[in-house]
Amino acid sequence: MEELAPRTEDEVRAHLAAGKLVEGLQHMSPEYLKGIRRILTVSADTELVSAPAYLRAAAHAPALNNFGSAVSIIQDELAHAHIGYRLLGDLGVDMPALIYEREPNAFKYPYAFDVPLDSWYELVLANALYDQAGFVLLSDVHQSSTFGPWKRALAKVDKEETFHLRHGRTWVKKFAADPDHKVKLQASLDWMFILTLEWFGLPDERKKHGIQLEYGFKGKSNDELRQDWMGHVVPFVEEVGLHVPAHFDEQTQRYVIDCPFPQQFDSEKKAWGGTEISWDDVLVRWKARGPMNETYVARLQKGYRG
């Protein structure tokens, strides 16, 4: 790291304080490099693993053109993953080894993608919930990132994620208007909503963001991002007549989660147990990864490994 990133931490702080962007290794310190590599890896891994997850669900497309729309979304996700990996390549990471030779449990993406999407309901909900989460996170990076090449590349992502959200919401609205579809949609929403709440990570009281915020890898804290996400999702689901265990509290002007959180989860049954657990318990579940981790990574590495 020291060889690749020649600047001291103080020099980076001075560079950022002058309002300048970091354009490449020549502007980085070892800490900056380590941090930006980590967040780029999480972002690229998340986009990448969504591809096999969405393809699995796309098999349930009601018609050929709907399958085509799902493939278009998959193409976007792959191209977004490409942004992160190519930037990592420029930061001295062996890109093919990172994508194709890592062990499944070394991939860094939200646990939600380890739980299989088994229907068209779950695909469109993933567009409305998961892509919204990705959108919230990346919009924050787009606004706050101090790494110039990433900030600029995200203009593409912004536009395409908007299409994914519209795809998700249009279908959710359509299904919610039909009593039979609505029941199935609600059943999927029940497990997917709480799982997406977890997406934003440990609450601020447990998580020190220090360098992440200071170096501008992100602009908002985990809890702020979780609030942003609920601000997009909760009013929408309520408007179409679906229910989620969260509401807006007028007094505090914040969203409040109305169920035990974090909560015990049965990933095989895709059901919440109703019992509150500790974040340490959640970290154990995350670290062990979920049911689809190995399958998805094997699929992604199939052509390379031969």
Binding site: N65, G68, V71, S72
Partner: peptide, 8 residues
């Protein structure tokens, strides 16, 4: 021909 936004 495969434009995903045709319906929209």
């Amino acid at each position: 021909m495969g434009c995903p936004a045709m319906d929209f």
